[in-house]
């Protein structure tokens, strides 16, 4: 299978402190990989090197064989701080990333603005400005913007954080199906083991700073998943793997 994202011997330093050391990861086309580890271990920094925001001090980060800093196609992304434009409405924020990314691809990878709004249950807030939203609604807008972005690579930095449990399960369900149908390659970051197991094909348990892979395992669940999966033995087994890995938190 074709490697879409390839990280080799990555080392990332900020001043005197080493954030990532000797980190390796290959993500194949259509795979959903979740980085699961304690806060501050450097998970977001790994995503930012894939985005080309950080240059590695040592090693290489490549997307489809191209240096990540030079990669010129859009990437669907949920930044940790949402980064919604306050002078644009919820719908306009989503539309901006949707239309800007469409120019680069023949295929429509992202959901339409309307479907993305519907998925996160924000149809009623489409014409509101970010200052009029609650923290959870802001997060859902950033998530909808990411899902509406046309890209064959999706990076979710705690994309479902602060989304209520009922809605989170629904979004996870639709999002995973969408990623699989479109053949999108995804790297996610999460602190929630339910989200991690449901969404992922593969989970990397990371140690505390500097992030090192403690465990790398394939989730033994069917590719086509629904809410019934939460009550299966395989789900519990995957949860036990995470707990045994000691990366909760």
């Amino acid at each position: 299978m074709e490697n879409i994202i390839s990280i080799t011997n990555l080392e990332l330093r900020f001043g005197q402190s080493t954030i990532i050391k000797n980190f390796n990861l290959d993500v194949i086309k259509g795979q959903i990989v979740t980085l699961f580890g304690p806060s501050g271990c450097g998970k977001s920094s790994i995503l930012k090197t894939i985005l080309g925001m950080y240059r590695p001090n040592t090693g290489a980060v490549r997307i489809k064989g191209i240096n990540a800093v030079e990669y010129s196609l859009p990437l669907a992304y949920t930044p940790q701080m949402n980064e919604l434009l306050p002078w644009k409405t919820v719908a306009q924020n989503i539309e901006l990333w949707n239309t800007e990314s469409l120019k680069f691809f023949d295929k429509k990878y992202g959901l339409s603005k309307e479907r993305a709004l519907g998925l996160v249950e924000l149809e009623g807030a489409a014409n509101k400005y970010p200052r009029q939203l609650s923290g959870g609604m802001e997060r859902r807008t950033a998530l909808a913007r990411c899902i509406a972005t046309h890209s064959d690579i999706l990076l979710l930095d705690e994309g479902l954080i602060s989304v209520e449990r009922r809605l989170r399960r629904h979004i996870m369900n639709v999002l995973r199906r969408h990623i699989k149908e479109q053949g999108i390659t995804a790297v996610c970051i999460s602190h929630d083991y339910e989200e991690t197991i449901f969404m992922s094909d593969r989970i990397l348990l990371l140690s505390a700073n500097p992030a090192q892979i403690q465990k790398d395992f394939i989730v033994d669940l069917p590719a086509d998943r629904g809410p019934e999966i939460f009550n299966t033995g395989s789900f519990t087994h995957a949860a036990m793997e995470i707990i045994a890995g000691g990366s909760l938190g």
């Binding site: 985005l51 925001m53 196609l73 990437l75 669907a76 992304y77 434009l85 972005t149």
Partner: peptide, 22 residues
């Protein structure tokens, strides 16, 4: 900072679409 990284916008585009109105 994610706008140029995710949408691959140039500096000129970031200035005109984000910094000037914002």
């Amino acid at each position: 900072e994610s706008f140029p990284a995710a949408l691959k916008w140039s500096r000129v585009k970031v200035v005109s679409k984000v910094i000037i109105p914002g």
